[in-house]
Design a protein around this nucleic acid. Sequence first.
RNA 1: GGGCGCGUAGCUCAGUGGGAGAGCGCUCGCUUCACACGCGAGAGGUCGCUGGUUCGAAACCAGCCGUGCCCACCA
Length: 851
Amino acid sequence: MSAVDRKKLEETTRYDPSEVEGRVFAEWMEGGYFHPEAEGSPEENFSVAIPPPNVTGVLHMGHALNGSMQDALVRMNRMRGRNTLWVLGTDHAGIATQSVVEKGLRAEGKSRQDLGREEFVRRVWEWKEEYGSRIVEQYKRLGASCDYERERFTLDAGYVKAVHRVFKRLYDKGYIYRDLYIVNWDPGSQSAISDLEVENREVEDTLYSIDYPVEGSDRVLTVATVRPETMLADTAVAVNPGDERYGDLVGQFCLLPLVGRRLPIIADEHVDPEFGTGALKITPGHDPNDFEIGRKHGLEEIVVIGPDGRLTEAVGDFAGMSAAEAQKAVVAALREEGRLRDEQPYAHSVPFSHRSGERIEPLISLQWFCRMDELAKPAIEAVERDEVRIAPAQWKRVYLDWMREIRPWCISRQLWWGHRIPVWYCDTCEETYVAEQAPERCGACGGELCQEEDVLDTWFSSALWPFATLGWPEDTPELRAFYPTSFLTTAREILFLWVARMVMTGIEFAGDVPFRDVYVHSVIQARDGRRMSKSLGTGIDPLEEIDVHGADALRFGLLAMSSTQDVRFSDAKVEQGRDLTNKLWNASRLILLNAAAVEPAPRPLHVEDRWILSRLEGTIASVTEKLETYDFAHAVQEAYSFFWRDLCDWYLEIVKPRLYDGEAEVSATLLWTLERLLGLLHPVMPFVSEEIWSFHPARRGHLVVHPFPQADESFIDHSAEADVEGGIGLTQRLRAWRDLVDVPAGSILSARIEGVDPPGFVGRLARFEISSDGGDPVASIGPVRVLASDQLDAEAVAERLGKRREELRAEVERGERKLGNAGFVAKAPAEVVEEERGKLERYRAELAELG
RNA sequence: GGGCGCGUAGCUCAGUGGGAGAGCGCUCGCUUCACACGCGAGAGGUCGCUGGUUCGAAACCAGCCGUGCCCACCA
């Protein structure tokens, strides 16, 4: 070790991540370790496509958790020598990005319409160039070992090509079509959105009952609605076909109040006779159910609410009002006409836009759709046959249930930012062109062509992520080397939105599933159990955690928190990680500063050496297995406990005298153990492990590409483990005894051993001078006979002895009761009964010894 | 309405058939030459409730209570 390094180690008694992390990351980047050549086959390589964060995004706790998991597995596989690629990139995020830029424009007093489409899109690109790499930089802070040289964007040139190819092929197959259909209209973003972008919220509304007079009779049909303003677009009233109250009315007509339109009275199974009066007003233009019923019965589709959420010219007096204003006006008018029979408070769930938060306005409009049933079939089979494995297991069923019920996907959005749909219409004739490249002129009439105004749903392009990022549709070396990717970790909220669609497009276009394994991780909630969200102000900023405690601490904490069930964010776990980095640093200082100049090697001289080597290999095997099965929480807990308890609390304390003596064997063993431990921890705590490694005498290159330790079972030594664990247990009993009889902490007591010799460290660690002196012992703890001394208070010792007797009597009684149970002895497994007998014997022996 | 979870120490969570665990917090004692982000020793739990299965249940089954999430077109 250089003098400079030694000085640094000697002086730095506290690990400071802020001093280390930036420097170490720069070394990794400089080494090019994250940038693999496109060689080898997907089977032998290891690759992961990051769930692309929104280009407008800032790193949140979900990214941090997901990133920590992916990086752990990516780093482990890279260390194993596999050609490893972690693809990084961002999503253009249509609505989110457009909104950000529009907000900026509004501050200048402008709208996107003022700029025009071309200029507006140019402005968004400008914004992207300036701010779009923010989240990428934040992934670096986390330590994510992505290939930053292959960064992709869902709107970059190659990606556009992939999107156009997919659109064209789906269109040619007849899956993509244009239709006048009822959609979820989001007045906030002024666009249609898909079913998956709608969230239902519980809302307090008023349920109005309105009388519709039956034509040519004095009967009325009373219908109930929470949206009276939509009555203006009613085109029928429906009753259940089995409803005897109305059987005679089916085929007759009602008169729509306020408007006077004749509404056919129809029969439809959908109507629940139990609800209200059993009569349902039908508004195909503004209600998805009514729309279906309307199409079934060939009803007229009237639209009275426009895309701006205001009543249209079609409704005279109410035109121009917002839906809410129209509701008041319609109710007032109905009341005046005496048609309003009842109003009741009514709680029900109502669709809201997940994007803008505004209440969805269902309305009929001309949109592009994609039929999903044919695409879903192979994607269902792939999961059924475990060609894509979904874990934990319950999500497999959730995926399959949803896929089997899949409905057409509305893929067009009335936005400017996104993949503009590659469809051209002829100005002069009726011709429509779908193409990957813009056609020059109309082939039929030679007329000018204009492109479809709408853009594609952002998820349409995200669905191609695993192969489009590797260069598809070109046959690239990257695609050949890294597709399919190895696994995907994701939050369950995008299982349908993203994961399922990637499986479908992967099979259809890239000829194979996009990944072999999907791990659905838990959600980290806010400290109070609410959702972490920006709007609620409940978010916890991972970057702040990194600033304060370091990236390793956050990574450790998040992995330790993670679980199959949702958990609350735990500051304590991050602090535990922080303490761990510091402890690692200090234990390493102890080892490195005192090591004799030797090569790391297992050189067991004593039972404790065999014990620590056995524990080390056992830990490596177990932690590795847990990482491979996505059991991150137990993996990190186990590594933690091996290091803290076994290595620091016991082994280092046991061997300190040998280490200070300059014993070569113990130095070799410690350097060996440290090397393997750093390798094991590196996937979870890359910075601190790399930094410590830089001081290790065996270092030849960076830890990031150092071989990952592979468990060597030949070191497993059950007898050494049993002996040392026995010694540890005895040491703890002796210490506890000392504490209970109130001897000063630093004092050395005298004792002699009777019976089986415990491991040699017991006396020193428990502060007992072991001799062969005779004399009457004042107390017996296992084989240790404590000898009388001035420092011992006879009364306290006697009291302690009495307590121990009580404990033992209770134990003996418990054992006797259990073994006296004929059923237990007869039916329990033999080894369980044997164990019980052994324990009872030991307790009886100790009790007899105490008298 | 359907589906999936969860209820274990003061807090956050492990534990899925053989004597209740971790981290934090708390109490007591330690300026022990790696670390006070430390060391040693403790206290603290009718494992939501009721019934059942079993020699044995925190764990398996049923019901109930509480709580969270996802899906769903009852106005």
